[in-house]
């Protein structure tokens, strides 16, 4: 029971971090149709900026400053890069962000070096929030969950309850009409791109301190963020939320299970040993396969339900 509850908590908190990451991606995609390959790179920049800024002014102010910096960077990229490429079509935009990911990663290396930086947990978040049975639940994970939920709430309120949110939604579905009504659609695009990047930056502030801040941190989360966004349904914030939790919990529990096909066959009386053909397949444990599951889910989802869990369009 203890194991189950703790695993569930771990799964949910990991899922929430994934959500923080993928929400920005989803937002940008639903708005502009741009699959931002550099999204994870902005996540990394968030972590590094928070580390550097945090050295001067502390973790909590950095929690606000870093996303703003990353957001501005994102807006600049949209204004001076993406907008130029826009006329060449979506593939060019996608390739642009693809190259941008390389560029950001290398620039980060030039500025902060090749090794991990000592980005430490602030004293206020160091320690245990509560102890369940005998396992303690770290404060940082609690904080991570709190920030993610607050973020979900504020993004949702922003989109549904404010004027700017209405304009964004209008520009999303009817860009020409919105433009005709006098709204500056390119600026809205810039805003959305910057905003999405800021969300990635915020995830970076938390993710960097929870894990490790190093130049490869972007590459390590990059693919999984895509999986979340696609499985949830391109462009659906709620779908991304659901998919994040699903993948987080699924991966956590898969690790916990030592089942293998060999074991299952053994249970029904068929013995599998090293002489059996394809032994390496039979002996694989679910826990070993765990990290592959998201990709399997992605492929299956795209085959059977290409619009994703809550998505509205297939392409």
């Amino acid at each position: 029971m203890e194991f189950f509850v703790i695993s569930l908590l771990n799964g949910v908190s990991y899922g929430l971090l994934l959500f923080m990451l993928s929400s920005g991606l989803t937002l940008i995609f639903s708005m502009m149709g741009v699959l931002n390959f550099a999204h994870a790179a902005f996540y990394m920049v968030g972590a590094y900026v928070a580390y550097s800024v945090g050295l001067k002014i502390g973790f909590f102010p950095a929690l606000f400053v870093a996303p703003v910096v990353v957001g501005l960077l994102g807006a600049a990229v949209e204004r001076y890069g993406l907008r130029t490429v826009h006329r060449w079509g979506h593939v060019a935009e996608l390739l642009f962000t693809f190259g941008l990911a390389y560029l950001i990663e290398e620039t980060v290396k030039v500025i902060w070096g090749l090794a991990a930086v000592p980005y430490r947990v602030p004293a206020a978040l160091d320690g245990h929030l509560f102890t369940l049975y005998s396992t303690s639940f770290p404060k940082l994970r609690g904080f991570m969950m709190l920030v993610a939920l607050l973020m979900l709430l504020s993004v949702w309120l922003l989109l549904k309850r404010t004027r700017i949110g209405l304009v964004i939604q209008a520009a999303l579905t009817h860009p020409h009409m919105a433009e005709a009504l006098g709204h500056n659609v390119p600026r809205v695009f810039m805003l959305v791109f910057g905003g999405g990047c800021a969300l990635a930056g915020l995830a970076g502030v938390i993710g960097g301190v929870a894990f490790i801040t190093e130049p490869s941190m972007a590459a390590s989360v990059g693919p999984i963020v895509f999986v979340v966004a696609v499985v949830g349904g391109m462009g659906s914030l709620a779908g991304a939320f659901l998919a994040s939790l699903l993948i987080g919990v699924m991966q956590t529990f898969a690790i916990a299970l030592d089942w293998s096909l060999a074991g299952m066959l053994g249970a029904i009386g068929i013995s599998v040993n090293e002489a059996t053909p394809l032994y390496s397949l039979w002996k694989l444990q679910i826990s070993q396969v765990a990290p592959v599951l998201p990709y399997l889910l992605l492929v299956l989802m795209l085959i059977f339900r290409p619009k994703g869990l809550l998505g509205t369009r297939a392409d």
Partner: peptide, 22 residues
């Protein structure tokens, strides 16, 4: 317990740790 995990792909080791604990 014995686990083999993919090289440089795991971001969150908490599940492994809770398995160790259990």
């Amino acid at each position: 317990g014995e686990d083999l995990h993919p090289l440089a792909q795991i971001k969150d080791f908490a599940p492994y740790v809770s398995k160790m604990k259990a």
